[in-house]
């Protein structure tokens, strides 16, 4: 598979007209990540801001498959040990989000169930009250 590593520098766009043959998108991402990491030091040395840059990994049809902002290199260093590549990281993030969401949803369902239970109980009470002969409703006066 041939991948193209276009470079965006702020508003400037520098297309990759050569491309690179790589086995899959994961490797393409890792290669771009390694390049970005090495380019950071070169850019800093020439007093150029790496944060303005990003790689756009595209296929031969020109479809952008993945965007790698150079700031991800910095973010990866801020993560706790055992830095993970982007996709794995985002998969984990997604999993974590789903888990939290499920839990939250569970709480909500429980709360909703409790609410339903309360409503049901109060409705039963109301029904019981309605079914019972009217007693003290009109101040003890009997008769329909």
């Amino acid at each position: 598979m041939r991948y193209y590593f276009h470079l965006r520098i702020g508003r400037e766009f520098s297309p990759d007209e050569i491309g690179l043959d790589l086995p899959d998108l994961d490797i393409a991402y890792l290669e771009a990540f390694h390049a970005a990491r090495a380019m950071w030091s070169e850019l800093l040395a020439e007093r150029s801001d790496p944060m303005l840059r990003s790689f756009e990994i595209a296929d031969s049809d020109g479809r952008v498959l993945l965007v790698l902002p150079f700031r991800e290199v910095l973010e990866s260093a801020r993560r706790p040990k055992g830095r993970m590549p982007n996709e794995i990281q985002s998969a984990y993030t997604l999993l974590e989000k789903t888990r939290t969401l499920t839990e939250a949803l569970g709480e909500e369902i429980k709360a909703a169930q409790a609410m339903i239970e309360t409503t049901r109980r109060s409705m039963q009470q109301t029904r019981r009250v309605l079914a019972a002969p009217p007693r003290a409703v009109n101040g003890g006066r009997s008769g329909a």
């Binding site: 590593f5 470079l7 520098s14 990759d16 007209e17 050569i18 491309g19 690179l20 790589l22 290669e31 771009a32 390694h34 390049a35 090495a38 380019m39 790689f55």
Partner: peptide
């Protein structure tokens, strides 16, 4: 001692 994408970028720079 460079990564492939870095070489790729550098080639475009030299060409550019």
């Amino acid at each position: 001692g460079l990564s492939t994408v870095h070489v790729n970028r550098t080639l475009q720079e030299i060409r550019g």
